[in-house]
């Protein structure tokens, strides 16, 4: 996982829960660095450990941690030099969602060893998209829910998110039903 992800976890914990909690999480994980190099590779295991430790220290479930992180990720990457990337990926939520796969593909080609997830869509009707989420990493779908919630806030567009098919329940991949109402859709 790129350091950017760990940096976002750190930023999330510090901004929402304070430095003390982050220090506790670090101690639990056994990480003694001060910060992460955003473009350097870190073992996936480290990120999972942070999620586990955050769940213990903050007394919330790992799914809640992932979801909070997904939502924060949009805000964080938007601020941390990726805002322009977001900007050119679409001016509406729908356009952005459609470009999401292309965005990940292009970014994936530029970074060695990046294993980006993939997002494809079936158009159910004008308001509704069925999103197919594929990832080599298992169990991160709560983060996708959070991510979508974050995008809904970024584009100031109400978005109803249903998650009828989940890889954690045995499906080959997760499916989300996304229904846009109002806003810039």
């Amino acid at each position: 996982m790129y350091g950017l992800v760990n940096a976002a976890v750190q930023d999330l914990v510090v901004s929402k829960f304070g430095t003390d909690k982050w220090e506790k999480i670090k101690t639990k994980v056994g990480w003694d660095g001060d910060s992460f190099s955003r473009m350097a590779q870190y073992p996936d295991d480290l990120t999972y450990k942070f999620v586990g430790a955050a769940s213990e220290v903050l007394s919330i479930t790992p799914d809640q941690v992932l979801e909070a992180f997904g939502e924060y990720w949009v805000l964080y990457t938007g601020q941390e030099g990726y805002g322009h990337m977001f900007d050119i990926a679409g001016s509406t939520l729908r356009e952005f969602l459609i470009n999401l796969d292309s965005l990940h593909t292009r970014v994936g080609q530029n970074f060695a060893n990046l294993k980006p997830p993939s997002f494809t869509y079936d158009e159910v009707n004008e308001q509704t998209l069925r999103m197919h989420y594929h990832s080599d990493r298992k169990g991160l779908c709560p983060m996708v829910s959070g991510l979508l919630r974050g995008l809904s806030k970024r584009f100031e567009t109400e978005l109803r998110i249903d998650h009828p098919v989940c890889s954690r329940l045995g499906a080959p991949h997760c499916e989300f039903m996304l229904t846009v109402s109002g806003g810039n859709a």
């Binding site: 955003r38 050119i88 970014v107």
Partner: peptide, 16 residues
């Protein structure tokens, strides 16, 4: 666009 993404990534890495 890919080139710009890459430049952006390297800029961030350099900033770090």
């Amino acid at each position: 666009v890919d080139f710009l993404y890459m430049v952006q990534a390297k800029t961030l890495a350099l900033a770090d």
